[in-house]
């Protein structure tokens, strides 16, 4: 690449730039596009026709089969996923907000020690933790319950870290002082004032944790044995693995993946701006 003269890039450079960006877009869209096409096909056409173009589309037929197969187990998995990710992320956000606020805005003994613990938690690999969690929960008789997936999902050291950084810059001490002078209790200040001021950071923490739980595989795999408690990820893999014996399950796996990917893809596009405001916010807001 040569340096271009100031004021308007030269044509070849521009074309190269656009070509590269378009190529990258094709790469990132390829599996999703294939999935969309494949979801409309019959099991035979999945193998018998060209993968990147439609052939006898029958999406509705496929999807009804996905939803009704095995006593409507797929919608159940979808609800489980929503429950684990939604409730888990909501609680994680609330706990992170409270802890992050405390670490940012109060001076007390042990503050740095607590913060260091949190940071160690950020660096701890979460799937290396899944097995230890299973061993302990097994001992406590908690495995194969909703709690076994929900409780670990509520912890987000990274969320605490983000909330602390954000609270440090977004919440002014003077404002807190003023609220205290007005006689507001600390809890009230937190729930009415602090949570509102921290909203951008909280949305980011929620989204991160939601995707983290939604995508997690090792933890539910280790914890759950009853397939009616499975999240979608676990369920789809069991379908794929059973496809050796029941070939139509290949199509159900594809259809199920399609149904689970599309809402999240849309959410990604719509919520994109919230992701952007997350990680470096601390340095932007000065």
């Amino acid at each position: 690449m040569t340096a271009s003269p100031p004021g308007g890039a030269p044509r070849p450079g521009r074309i190269l730039l656009v070509a590269f960006l378009a190529l990258a877009a094709c790469y990132f869209l390829l599996p999703v596009y294939w999935l969309t096409v494949a979801a409309t096909k019959s099991n035979a056409d999945l193998y018998g026709s060209f993968g990147l173009w439609f052939d006898n589309p029958r999406l509705w037929h496929n999807l009804t089969r996905v939803f009704t197969y095995n006593d409507h187990i797929y919608p159940r998995w979808a609800l489980n996923s929503l429950l684990y990710a939604g409730v888990g992320a909501l609680l994680a956000t609330l706990l992170s907000a409270a802890a992050g606020f405390a670490l940012a805005k109060y001076r007390f003994r042990g503050r740095e020690a607590v913060f260091r613990c949190v940071l160690a938690g950020v660096l701890l690999p979460s799937t290396a933790l899944a097995l230890p969690l299973y061993l302990m929960f097994n001992k406590l008789g908690l495995t194969n319950t909703y709690w076994s997936v929900l409780i670990p999902s509520v912890v987000s050291p990274f969320g605490v870290y983000l909330c602390r950084i954000y609270a440090e810059s977004a919440i002014s001490d003077n404002l807190l002082e003023a609220a205290r002078v007005d006689g507001a209790r600390e809890e009230r200040i937190f729930f009415t004032l602090v949570l509102r001021l921290m909203t951008p950071a909280l949305v980011t923490v929620f989204l991160f944790q939601f995707v983290h739980i939604w995508n997690n595989y090792f933890l539910p795999l280790a914890m759950l044995s009853d397939d009616r408690k499975y999240p979608i990820t676990l369920g789809l893999v069991t379908w794929k693995e059973a496809a050796d014996r029941a070939p139509e399950l290949t199509q159900y796996t594809v259809g199920g993946a399609f149904v689970s990917v599309i809402p999240l893809a849309v959410a990604m596009l719509v919520l994109q701006r919230y992701w952007r405001t997350g990680l470096t916010e601390g340095s932007v807001k000065e």
């Binding site: 990258a24 877009a25 990132f28 869209l29 390829l30 599996p31 999703v32 294939w34 999935l35 494949a38 993968g51 995707v211 939604w214 995508n215 595989y217 979608i232 990820t233 676990l234 789809l236 893999v237 794929k240 796996t253 594809v254 993946a257 689970s260 990917v261 999240l264 893809a265 959410a267 990604m268 596009l269 994109q272 992701w275």
Partner: peptide, 22 residues
């Protein structure tokens, strides 16, 4: 940007299933 970011919302297991098919 949204296009490039989209795969992050696809769970690793499902991404693997998809690429497995490919």
């Amino acid at each position: 940007r949204a296009t490039y970011f989209l795969p992050y919302g696809v769970p690793g297991v499902i991404a693997t299933l998809l690429w497995g098919f490919l």
